[in-house]
Structure formats: structure tokens, C-alpha cells
Computed example of a mutant assay.
Amino acid sequence: MRTAQQQDCIEVYTRPELYASTFWLHGLGATGTDMDSFITHMHQSRELGLHHLAPNAGLRRVTVRGGMPMRAWFDIKGDPAEAGEDVEGIRENAARIHTLLDDECARGIPSTCILLGGFSQGASLALFSALRYSQPLAGAVMFAGELLLEDTLQAERHPANATLPILLLHGSNDENTPIELARHARDRLTELGHPVELVEYELGHEVSLEQITRMDEWAFSLLQQAIKQSA
């Protein structure tokens, strides 16, 4: 039986028997269906027996879009250094992602066989949620994302995910989320002890098949090992 949290969530099953799961969080103004290209092009990993989930963010007014209501994980007020971050929105939706993770574990998927990822705003929330989750996860991947509430990271990072593997995929020509933010995230996370890989591409604020293929290889390696260890 699907929970209320899962009802606004796209789900894809790659095999009758499921051994691992991935969560994909969409970007600002998009929906879970926009993550279809991530899911359908994970050709190598699908052989493992995956449950893919792509939840929809709720509707909220977004300041930088003139207060227009759209699907967003949190408000964007402008430059965080000047306008601040939407702490309430970030924490509210991180709690929702944690509930979805709890649901997935309850259905029999070990937390160590669950991967979180996303694009842009969704990527940022995915990493934020993964680092603060109370059970060990397989890894986290950010496509064009950045660190959220960095000042609280060291204090709030849960010991269960203190060595969480992280993959950052970012366009060097990204004007929306400049590459410097990804480099800073890599340096800060490495400093905290995470195995982090940053791969830069000659792209803007977008996702390419080459990036997804790279992510698929990384995810397959992590999840294959996790499934064997959980057996």
C-alpha cells in the first residue's frame, strides 16, 4: 500500500525483484517526470533491480520569479549572501525526503542500497537530505547543485553518513549555478572526509547524456557492491 507521501511521486521498477533504489529530485518549476531521462538512461544499473522514485515538489511562490507559484523545493530569494536562504522550506522538504527514505527501508530495501540525486535545486536538496539522514546511504549525486545551509553542515551531518560517497557533475559554463560553487562543495566535503568526485563538462545549466552515462557507471559500482554486502 502506498503512503500519502508516495502518492505524488513517479515510480519505475526495472525488475520484478528489487534490490536497490534511487531517488531523483527535479529542478525549479519542473516535475518528477522531468527526471525520466535520468531513469531511462541508467542502462547498466537497471540490471541490478532498481526501484526509481521521482517525487514532485509542492507549489510555492518563488521570489526570484516575481512571486509566481510553481513547483519548488524551497524559495529562492536571490543571492543567498544578501537575501538569505529559505531555511524553513529546505528543512520542511528534507523531512519529506527522509520520510520517503524511511518508507523505502520499511518495504525491505536496505538504506545502504539507496542513492539520492537530482538536478539544480533538487540536487542541492538531495545532498542536504542525504548528509543529514540517520541511516547510512549508498551515495549522493548532484547535477548542477550547491551546498545548502553550509554553516550548519558540520554540526548537523549525521555520523551514519559521515563518509557518504558523493559525485558532482557540473557545467563549466553554468551561469545559473556557477562552477565555482561545485568546486567549493568538493573542497568543503573533502575536508569533512567524504570521498568526492567532481567532473566538469563544457555545458551550461543543463544535463547531457554523457553526464548521465558517467553517473550510471558510478551508481552501478556503488549499488552492486552494496547489494552484495547486504545479501
Rank of each mutant, 00 (worst) to 15 (best):
A182N: 03
L181A: 08
R183L: 11
I166H: 07
A185D: 00
Q154M: 11
A140H: 01
R132I: 10
E191I: 06
E191D: 14
G171I: 06
A155W: 10
L153D: 09
L168E: 04
E150V: 12
A182K: 01
D187G: 05
L181N: 06
E146M: 15
L169I: 09
F128T: 03
E156A: 11
E156V: 08
L169E: 08
H194E: 05
E150F: 08
L131F: 00
L147F: 07
H184A: 01
A138D: 03
Q154P: 07
A144C: 03
P159G: 08
R186M: 12
E180A: 15
L168H: 13
P165G: 02
L127Q: 07
R132N: 12
A182I: 04
Q135G: 04
D187T: 14
E150Y: 08
M142H: 07
F143H: 12
P195D: 10
D174P: 00
A155H: 14
N173W: 08
P195F: 13
D174E: 07
E146S: 15
G193Q: 02
T163G: 06
Q154N: 11
A138C: 10
L164K: 00
H194Y: 09
L181I: 06
Q135H: 14
N176R: 13
L168C: 05
S129A: 15
E175M: 12
H158Y: 05
R157C: 15
E175Y: 11
P159L: 11
E180R: 12
F143V: 09
T190K: 13
L148V: 03
A155C: 08
L167E: 03
E175D: 15
L127K: 02
L169H: 02
E146P: 03
E150I: 10
L147H: 03
L137K: 03
Q135V: 08
A126T: 08
L181K: 13
G171M: 05
G139S: 14
A126P: 00
L147W: 05
A162F: 05
Y133M: 05
H194S: 13
M142F: 07
D151L: 06
P165E: 04
L125T: 03
T177D: 09
E180Q: 12
L181W: 09
R183V: 12
V196S: 01
E180H: 10
E150Q: 14
L189V: 08
A182L: 02
H170C: 01
M142Y: 08
M142W: 08
V141T: 12
L169S: 02
